[in-house]
Design a protein around this nucleic acid. Sequence first.
DNA 1: TTCCGAAACGTTATAATATTACGTTATCTG
DNA 2: CAGATAACGTAATATTATAACGTTTCGGAA
Lengths: 166, 166
Amino acid sequence: MASSNETETFPTNEHDHDSCIADAIDAADRVCRERGLRFTKIRRRVLEIVWNRHAPTGAYDILETLQGERGSAAPPTVYRALDFLLENGFVHKIESLNAFIGCGRPDGDHAAQFLICGNCRQVGELDDPDIARLIARKARGVGFDVSRQTIEIEGLCRHCAESVHG
Amino acid sequence: MASSNETETFPTNEHDHDSCIADAIDAADRVCRERGLRFTKIRRRVLEIVWNRHAPTGAYDILETLQGERGSAAPPTVYRALDFLLENGFVHKIESLNAFIGCGRPDGDHAAQFLICGNCRQVGELDDPDIARLIARKARGVGFDVSRQTIEIEGLCRHCAESVHG
DNA sequence: TTCCGAAACGTTATAATATTACGTTATCTG
DNA sequence: CAGATAACGTAATATTATAACGTTTCGGAA
């Protein structure tokens, strides 16, 4: 098993949350600079809010947080920021939860797979290229040209499975 | 009804739509009888409506159809019927579309994969056990105990890819 | 058969999620 | 600076889903 927090699929209790947020923001900042994108205050703040939760976060949860901070904010503010963050791979949408989560690997395209723990509600990101390739191959086999994969796997994370089964 | 339609992932233009609906309803009927479930008029009708579209159908589309037929109907009527049909594997929910589609193989559990054509909006069902197994294996490899897989693949079906690319 | 209890249904209201439309402000570029 | 474009503020509304509660229907036990 691997070395650090980065390679853990699920966040561990011990992981340095503050620096993991900071890393994510820094990475987004850098990518935006490289691509000439505007990483505005709102976009940055929404990304921070999502990372702070470190769990799937609903658009209206984000909205409440923003409202607490700025006095006023409306849904489009949040959805526009989320659209930007999604387009550029800084967050993912978990379709089966209608919620958003920070992307741990915001550089380059990747087909992610999400492990959703039904007990603790945490989500891990798998990013397994074998899965993505097999799906692409099987789909091509029936004449289907894949552009995007949504893979959401529900079950129990290691920790919760241990608590539940004994 | 020959094996040809059954093994096509996407419905072909030639397929016998009427008999394909009838088959689906008959299959559900039989399964309900076997399991002692109540296949009520509403449940049957909702399943028919979904199959009639032969494409992902929103709950409120179903509702409109029902309202046209019965004069009155409210969301819970539709959602209760859908819950029943989902629980028993007669329909699937496409999470990324918030829509429902008839299941082509309503017997026994299966982890399905959906091919969603971004052009014609048709959805094919793959049911590839290799994909399901690989995902389960990879997830277990990081200590995750899988109970359900949501796999939705967006792209272009054979027919649309041909029209688009030449 | 009758009665009971559970399941299914009808109805109203409301919650939760997401988008449209349009005017204003900020930022980039020539 | 001026014009163009992108981002944002705001109000309204669309879309999807559930809660709560009373009534009806149905299958099985007495």
